[in-house]
Design a protein around this nucleic acid. Structure first.
Lengths: 231, 231
DNA sequence: GCGCTGTCAAGAGCAGTGCTCTCGTTTTTG
DNA sequence: CAAAAACGAGAGCACTGCTCTTGACAGCGC
């Protein structure tokens, strides 16, 4: 393993890397990813802009690092919210998860936009992001798994056919064997609905209709809990 | 009214405005809004970059014009798809609407991102965009209205309380008086789910799970049609 | 302790951006 | 016909991401 005592150089490098990300995150929160400027970050840190390239080979790499941090911040928040909920109350956990996502998004709109808005770089999500990105979806299926056997579907799930049945059964076998394929797809539907609704609110698509979205959001969270059959 | 025969200058201006938008749309489709450059547009048109500012006061204004055009293109596409469906088959119309949105989005990913991704300008959606932006949602409630009286809800809608009841009753009275408040909210839920799912597919959030999303999309469209009670 | 080697910050510079201002020219208008 | 408005082009400002070179310093084996 790496030694605990590093050379002065290595410690300085690690510290500066953190400081750069900290300042970049500040500017991101202030002005959005669009206006995040390497030169401005360097200026705020009192160093030459060229020196920054020793730590992040390009602006996109800095953004990727911020994306990973944001995914982890959201993951921490949501996992903690779920953990604080009663262990035997899947609906309370569901509520905590959904409201955790929304609250975090409203507190960090630019970071949320970085995760779920238009992808900034050339469409290719680096490999390092997929694990942090999976945390909230995994927490969501964990909540559903915790309710397995007690699920109560008011409306039966339509049968899965052909390619969808194959895709779903592979996924279910890998990550939620105690849950039926139909319920699993409903979980994915609810996840996309949650992100769609939060994006609507943050991106201003609800201004003419449910402008203070609190009541609508709370209601929809319950409806989607019913949709996946949570007790 | 304005005369049909305009001065040569006015006709030239109108034509050049269209040409600028055409070229900008080309570059938008190629590289995305991020890389859309006024200078590059001017270069392609063989004119000085400064001359462009006589037609669009800023880059954001050009983008706003493109946003309006994109909303209208999507609106045309969806309205036409619904109109081509059997008049007495709300579920077929629903299918046409949802698949119309997805198909258009897949054919014009950057323009879709412009509409439903991270808002590019300073968060304020200009007044001119809200009418074109409302076309697809309005088409969606029209489909539901067309099925009023024949709706079949497998799972009853949770009662709307407090602020939500007030917001919804105002909206329902204004745009869908023959539909119950509960069904109306489910329509909004389905709309946000649709956009969330298409965004997931286009922005790469489905790569690990339902990567070819065709089967999952088709299945979910039917599930959401059930959700709003379409016959 | 000494020198080599790799790492580092800094500066200059390149190509590009949005945007403003001025300056002649052209077209419309009174 | 003359005044006024609109127009295209050019120069220029302040900024961006990024590259290359230069000189200084730290860490290592000897």
């Amino acid at each position: 393993m790496a030694p605990v005592i590093r050379t002065a150089r290595e410690r300085a490098r690690e510290e500066l890397t953190l400081e750069i990300k900290r300042e970049a995150r500040r500017q991101l929160a202030d002005e959005g990813a669009q206006r995040l400027s390497l030169r401005a970050v360097a200026r705020a840190l009192g160093m030459a802009s060229s020196a920054l390239y020793r730590y992040f080979p390009s602006r996109d790499d800095l953004l990727t690092a911020l994306i990973i941090d944001a995914y982890n911040a959201l993951g921490d928040r949501v996992e903690e919210a779920v953990a604080k909920s009663p262990a035997d109350d899947p609906r309370a956990q569901w509520r905590a998860l959904c409201h955790g996502v929304r609250d975090w998004a409203r507190e960090n709109p630019h970071e949320y936009a970085l995760l779920f808005g238009t992808p900034v770089p050339g469409y290719a999500a680096p490999q390092d992001t997929i694990a942090p990105a999976a945390r909230v979806p995994l927490a969501l299926v964990a909540v559903i798994r915790g309710a397995a056997g007690r699920l109560d579907l008011r409306a039966p799930v339509r049968p899965l056919r052909g390619a969808l049945a194959e895709q779903t059964s592979a996924l279910v076998a890998a990550m939620a064997p105690e849950v039926s394929a139909g319920v699993f797809t409903r979980g994915v539907v609810a996840w996309s609905q949650l992100v769609g609704m939060v994006s609507f609110e943050l991106f201003g698509h609800l201004v003419g209709s449910f402008d203070p979205a609190d009541a609508f959001f709370a209601h929809t969270v319950e409806e989607m809990a019913d949709f996946v059959g949570l007790p």
